[in-house]
Design a protein around this nucleic acid. Structure first.
Length: 413
DNA sequence: TCTGGGGTCCTAGGACCC
DNA sequence: TCTGGGGTCCTAGGACCC
């Protein structure tokens, strides 16, 4: 078995990873100090736990758990609706604080960020570790939330570092210490390695992150696909994933799905689908995007997923137009007598709205009318909430299928 | 994990062309 | 009609992430 010496120079690149601890709950506790130190859970509106405070976790409450189960396990638990607006504000502020230290900040998700600290040791007159402490203190002081910080040579290693000290820790992994941090870490816990690849690794005799990192480059390349070769490099201290400061300004796909109490009722299911379409289109218009394709999906009670993909003759994000396609997809998928529990609409092959053609609309007047209509709808929703306007078409059952003449491509089951 | 919602990227293999 | 080789594009589906 060939083996690879583990690196490395002291600091080639210095990447810091910030991971907020129990973020959603922490935001609630920061804005309502009476919640501090108590078992708090967020996710009431969905009936499952989206986030749990450490006090709640200590009593066995986990993400994804049913709320009724939480109450049984811990009657004094406080169960809150999630408030994404609030969490987004905290997240934005977190980013601003980080940018006071370095312009190279990537907000990876609502509660995580990477910062490239390379070269900041001298100008800040402190070690990278001290810099990390100052960042941590600034966040705690300003936002009143706890974060875990990891500092290392690559993103993958920095993620490993921040996890090690959770919650509230600060861990530095230097080049010559890498092996110590990987030797007891199961390969499945490395960022980017899921259960499937972990199982494959086990077959190859790879159990820890160190086992993986120590295999030769040739071995990795011949037994794994590209993403895992990249992870291997990152574990060995070679930067493959740079810190990308550009904010996300667009999407490749937009989807809305909803799970409901199992039903076989045709109109009820179709109404859910129409609501999915409304929501997805609303989001697309907000980003000035229009789909060229649309996927309709139904999930049965047995958890089987059936989907159909439709090509749109013209990209647009108006439910009045796309509703016909959704209906066509629905007709294709729906089987009377079956019980369904989820619907979904995904908009894909998104293009910037400027570049869309208007050939679908015989007359320009109709297009302008639609634009005005949806501008008004979107304005109301932005100010008053999504529920304020619902399309009548969302409440009606589907029209007879034989009136539809829409080309359809690709059935996926 | 007996199952919520929203995303991204990679790859094998088929279609099509020369 | 069969044989040969090679390139590109697209799609379905897999795998993972928070």
């Amino acid at each position: 078995m060939s083996s690879q010496p583990l690196v490395v120079e002291e600091w080639r690149r210095v990447i810091l990873h910030v991971d907020a601890d129990a973020f959603f709950v922490a935001c609630e506790q920061a804005t309502n100090p009476r919640l501090k130190g108590r078992p708090v859970v967020v996710g009431r509106e969905r009936g499952i736990v989206t986030a749990a405070s450490y006090e709640a976790k200590a009593r066995g409450i986990k993400r994804g758990m049913r709320i009724w189960e939480v109450k049984r396990l811990c009657p004094e638990a406080i169960v809150l609706h999630s408030d994404y607006e609030k969490y987004s504000l905290f997240s934005v502020r977190l980013g601003e604080i980080l940018r006071e230290f370095s312009p190279q900040v990537e907000q990876y998700s609502i509660d995580e960020a990477f910062v490239d600290l390379t070269g900041l040791r001298r100008p800040s007159h402190s070690s990278y570790e001290m810099l990390g402490r100052r960042i941590q203190e600034a966040i705690t002081t300003e936002l009143d939330i706890s974060v875990s910080i990891g500092i290392s040579l690559t993103k993958v290693l920095a993620k490993i570092a921040s996890r090690e000290g959770k919650p509230g820790g600060l861990t530095v992994i230097r080049g010559r210490e890498i092996h110590r941090h990987l030797e007891r870490l199961p390969i499945a816990e490395v960022w980017g390695v899921g259960p499937n690849t972990a199982a494959w690794c086990a077959k190859l005799g790879i159990n820890t992150a160190l086992d993986f990192a120590r295999r030769s480059e040739g071995f990795i390349r011949s037994h794994f696909s590209k993403p895992f070769y990249e992870i291997w490099q990152e574990l060995n201290g070679t930067v493959v994933y740079p810190v990308r400061p550009e904010p996300k300004e667009s999407y490749r796909s937009i989807s809305k799905v909803r799970t409901f109490a199992p039903t076989g009722d045709r109109s009820a299911i179709y109404a859910q689908l129409s609501a999915n379409l409304e929501d997805a289109c609303f989001k697309a218009r907000r980003y000035r995007l229009a789909p060229q394709r649309l996927i309709v999906l139904l999930r049965t009670q047995e958890f089987e997923e059936r989907a159909v993909e439709l090509r749109l003759s013209t990209a647009c994000a108006y439910p009045i137009i796309l509703g016909r396609f959704v209906q066509k997809g629905f007709e294709e998928l729906y089987e009377p007598g079956r019980v369904y529990r989820q619907t979904g609409v995904m908009l894909t092959n998104l293009v910037a709205v400027r570049h869309t053609q208007t050939s679908l609309f015989e007359d320009q007047v109709q297009l302008e009318r639609l634009e005005r209509l949806y501008r008004a709808v979107d304005g109301l929703r932005t100010r008053l909430g999504m529920e304020v306007v619902a399309g009548g078409w969302a409440l009606r059952g589907p029209a007879p299928a034989d009136r539809l003449k829409i080309p359809m491509v690709n059935i996926r089951v």
